[in-house]
């Protein structure tokens, strides 16, 4: 009997927590179909707010810019971060490795305002005009550490004798990297890329500091519009962004799962091919 009431309270609590977590998003989406113009009373259904979003060419340009920055900065961060992970992996001295890893984590634990303010000082001293370039550089910079953290465990999972075997079979450094190491750590790199992509898409504080007058990303635009009060265009936009984030999450799980299956399959095939090669020798 007592156990039963406990279970019931548990479920009530969880369902409440669940509703609260999703309340703001569904609230926004619900009112995005409101023809009344505010978020207080639902007066009638309309698609007007959505067509307003698509007709707003300035907003569309900002959407394109935001995604361009996210795609490119995540790509560059993935490349530099993978290099970093490889560099740290190959370090022989333990202290060196710990030092590099702690430096790596500084940007992950720093508050956004500090990153934004310090980047602003740095970019101004370099004489870089605030705008696309400064936002791009900052996004690459704060995405690199998460890529390193995603790739490094994959490298450590790798059996070192794989590299040794490749060397023994006459593979040079480049072949070892592209045929053995990179295929093995690809899931880590993809995870890192996705994290970097979402970091860039979600970032507000750092971008707010380093963006000039001429350039804006979605977060900054929403902030300046929200400060002026409620406009249901933002609701429509948020519904679209929510759909996109959902797709991104689903896509991420799909890809990372697919890669896992594929890579084990591929490794098996590779092993067979390897065996054949040795036999023919």
């Amino acid at each position: 009997m007592k156990k039963g009431t406990f279970l019931r309270w548990r479920n009530v609590y969880l369902v409440t927590a669940f509703l609260v977590m999703y309340l703001p998003i569904f609230y926004l989406i619900f009112y995005s179909f409101n023809s009344g113009g505010d978020m207080n009373r639902f007066t009638g259904f309309t698609w007007e707010n959505y067509s307003a979003v698509f007709e707003d060419s300035r907003l569309m340009l900002i959407v394109v810019d935001t995604f361009l920055v996210a795609f490119l900065s995540a790509l560059l961060a993935a490349i530099i971060g993978t290099c970093g992970a490889l560099g740290i992996y190959y370090m022989k001295r333990r202290q060196m490795r710990t030092l590099f890893l702690s430096l790596n984590n500084i940007l992950l634990v720093s508050p956004d305002v500090i990153i934004g303010a310090s980047f602003l000082i740095f970019l101004t001293i370099l004489g870089i005009r605030l705008g696309f370039t400064s936002v791009m550089l900052s996004h690459i910079a704060f995405s690199i550490p998460i890529v390193v953290l995603m790739v490094l465990p994959k490298l450590q999972e790798m059996n070192p004798s794989l590299i040794q075997a490749a060397k023994d079979l006459g593979a040079n450094q480049w072949t070892t990297l592209t045929k053995v190491i990179l295929p093995f750590i690809t899931p880590g790199i993809i995870a890192g890329y996705f994290m970097a992509f979402t970091y860039s898409l979600d970032d507000f504080a750092v971008t707010f500091f380093v963006t000039g007058n001429g350039f804006s990303t979605l977060s900054v635009e929403i902030y300046s519009r929200a400060r002026q009060g409620i406009s249901l265009d933002i609701n429509a936009l948020s519904a679209l962004m929510f759909l996109f984030s959902l797709l991104l999450v689903v896509g991420y799980y799909f890809i990372s799962h697919e890669k896992k299956v594929e890579s084990t399959k591929k490794r098996k095939e590779d092993r067979v091919a390897e065996k054949k090669a040795v036999e023919t020798l």
Partner: peptide
């Protein structure tokens, strides 16, 4: 919901 832009949540 963490994946939804923090500004949209504040706006809501």
């Amino acid at each position: 919901p963490t994946w939804i832009n923090i500004l949209l949540k504040a706006y809501a």
